[in-house]
Amino acid sequence: MSQPSRPKSPDDQTGMYIRVKRNKTTYFLQCVPSETILQIKEKLHEITDQPVENQRLILLPNREMLEDSKSLADQKVENDAVVALTLRKDDNEFEEVNIVRPNDFYQSREADGGSNW
């Protein structure tokens, strides 16, 4: 009798993506659950030119700081997750999480008489 094929777990090694946000910018990154946070930071380095050691990643909405050595799966970072990026400032401290949301702008746009679509 043939072995029934094992069902694939949906998040096994299949591709996922996360949304890394800072100010008005969102970076979509393709990744796999076994990737470490350090690897994610290296990817961000390639597109933002920010050195890995100047980046800090924080999982939203719980504001959990993500550790370099752990994997995405370890820290429950799932497909489509939103992660905040903060950078080291001149005084060596990291900046606060700052993500601008589009809703903050609706008021002023309506005042401008701009079309809504």
């Binding site: 008005k24 910018t25 969102t26 979509f28 597109i47 601008v100 702008f105 746009r109 701009g114």
Partner: peptide, 8 residues
């Protein structure tokens, strides 16, 4: 986007 938000 219209409001100047960037998606990379």
């Amino acid at each position: 986007s219209a409001e100047g938000f960037e998606f990379v």
